[in-house]
Design a protein around this nucleic acid. Structure first.
Length: 510
RNA sequence: GGCGCUAUCGUCUAACGGCUAGGACGUUGCCCUUUCAAGGCGAAAAUACGGGUUCGACUCCCGUUAGCGCCA
């Protein structure tokens, strides 16, 4: 409720921001921050500003910017304003630095790195807080500028007022910091090179950000930012510091965990809706037992107040489960459409430039329609955790010759002779099914009863359909694990099914 | 070293100060089944520790421990 009051007090739209540093690919932690800001802005009919905090010129790369933009696009996270680039906003920051200098809220510091380091070591050895001594705080602006013009080097420090800084964090409640422990901190290397902490504060204020929703790793920066905002007469935004996403070792998710970028998840065949659902439930839950949430559901039920305070370890198995769940929710048609790029990527099929509904099986040159893919997708649906797995699970539908042989084809203790008998029987049964009635049900009706009597035929006392069905499945798939035999036969069609049975008999080399 | 944040099954989490501490993933047993999945029904699995406050503490307070974060 308090949050609402502060929101209204801003006399306008709620405005949030997503300001990644493009110094690496966008991983889950960053994407989740974007997601929560997006949801919050939608809930309040507000505005989301996209800003690239690219002041680190060495580490910021255009390809990382592209990766972030691609990732957001894929997840369906849109923004209302931006992207802004901090690297292009130098004059704005210089202006505010000059103002602080002129008002005496900042000053030039000529202390050398070595002196500062020595002082810090000394303070730490005496268990004192490592704060700047304030040695240069008495140097007037005129004197400082004179020294600068003579080529002396200096940084710009903020003149910290000793006070208790208190603010209300939506996630963490009342927080208070003693500014004496901060000292006069550095805000810029010089007028043209303001530091991260300073520029992001300036931008948040200038851009009218009402709610700063960010990771708790920057929580210790907040008092400094509030001090800067106060000195410049800016309103203080509402803060919400979210718990971090952790790697398996419980440390902040980063590159060394192999933190996968969002675009990488796309390549592996994760669905954006699964990613959204998964990310939202890292640190948040609706307080009910409902665990399936679309973006619309999140906009309806999400609230910052319900966010967990502790960091959340990323659980890949759960993501896989969710992804499989969402895959199963699609229609066979929709799933097949999603799978086409993966099948093409792995070289199983080629797209037809002229006919959007036609594909070519690369290994055989055979032309197939979309219905072939749709059938496969429908059958494979329960086994798919990631879209990219389609290629491995469906490869035998796109193969020319299969490697079978006795070890693959025999069921349990069956001999090569038994197995040949089974395949002969299958050819016989299948031949009787007309092309026009070639469906999974018809094939099953033709073969299942025979499979029940077949074990007797080869003098097995135990009733076991496997003596007929395993060779069938193996002959059609050449795999120890695959779809059911009737499903495969259905997809393959009568001709290819018979062909594979004969090839299997040949592979027995009797 | 200083400051800060955090603490419920292996993981994500639920539980106005009041039930056998609930759910999900994972693990596991059974069912279904030619294989592998999916599905159905079960099981094991947690309040970090120590003090208070209270008739009663996962919940509130203090301390300890541990983890993490920030500062160079």
């Amino acid at each position: 409720m308090e949050e609402k009051d502060q929101t209204e007090a801003r006399n306008g739209k709620v405005c949030v921001r997503f300001p990644p540093s493009p110094t690496g690919l966008m991983h889950l932690g960053t994407a989740r921050l974007a997601l929560f800001n997006y949801i919050f802005s939608k809930q309040h009919n507000g505005r989301l500003v996209f800003r690239l905090d690219d002041t680190d010129k060495e580490r910021s790369k255009p390809e990382y910017i592209q990766d972030i933009i691609d990732g957001l696009g894929w997840l369906g996270i849109t923004y209302d304003d931006g992207p802004y680039y901090q690297s292009q906003r130098g004059p704005v920051y210089a202006g505010f630095l000059k103002k602080l200098l002129k008002d005496g809220n900042a000053y030039y510091c000529f202390c050398s790195r070595e002196d500062l380091e020595a002082q810090r070591q000394y303070q730490m050895s005496r268990s004192e807080p490592p704060v700047y001594s304030g040695k240069c705080s008495g140097i007037s602006l005129e004197e400082a500028e004179a020294r600068l013009s003579k080529g002396e080097r200096a940084v710009i420090r903020f003149r910290t007022k000793i006070k208790k800084i208190e603010f209300n964090d939506i996630v963490r409640g009342e927080l208070s910091f003693d500014s004496a422990l901060l000292g006069d901190f550095v805000i810029a290397k010089d007028l043209d090179n303001a530091l991260y902490n300073f520029v992001s504060t300036i931008d948040d204020s200038v851009m009218g950000i009402t709610h700063v929703i960010r990771g708790e790793d920057v929580l210790p920066n907040t008092p400094k930012q509030i001090l800067i905002q106060e000195a410049l007469g800016f309103p203080i935004p509402v803060y919400a510091h979210l718990p971090l996403i952790l790697g398996p070792d419980r440390s902040k998710l980063s590159k060394r965990h192999g933190a996968t970028s969002v675009t990488e998840y796309k390549k592996m065949g994760y669905l954006p809706e699964a990613m959204i659902n998964f990310m939202a439930f890292l640190g948040w839950n609706p307080g009910t037992e409902e665990e399936v949430y679309s973006i619309q559901g999140l906009i309806r039920d999400f609230s910052l107040e319900k966010i967990q305070k502790g960091g959340a370890v990323f659980n890949a198995k759960r993501l896989d489960y969710l992804n499989g769940f969402y895959i199963r929710r699609h229609s066979a048609k929709a799933l097949a459409e999603l799978c086409v790029p993966y099948l093409a990527e792995s070289g199983l099929i080629a797209l037809d430039e002229d006919d959007k509904n036609a594909y070519e099986i690369v290994a055989t040159g055979e032309r197939i329609g979309f219905d072939y893919l749709e059938k496969i997708a429908g059958y494979l649906q329960p086994r798919l955790k990631k879209l990219a797995e389609i290629s491995e699970l469906a490869d035998y539908f796109f193969a020319r010759d299969l490697e079978t042989g006795i070890d693959m084809l025999k069921w349990k203790d069956a001999t090569a002779e038994n197995t040949k008998l089974a395949l002969d029987e299958l050819i016989n049964l299948v031949s009787k099914i007309g092309e026009g009635e070639w469906t999974k049900e018809k094939i099953e009706q033709a073969i299942l009863p025979a499979s029940e009597s077949f074990s007797k035929k080869i003098n097995k006392t135990e009733w076991d359909r496997g003596y007929l069905l395993w060779p069938m499945r193996a002959a059609l798939s050449a795999k120890k694990m695959s779809l059911g035999p009737f499903e495969i036969a259905d997809v393959l069609g009568k001709q290819k099914t018979l062909l594979r049975f004969r090839a299997a008999i040949d592979s027995l080399s009797l």
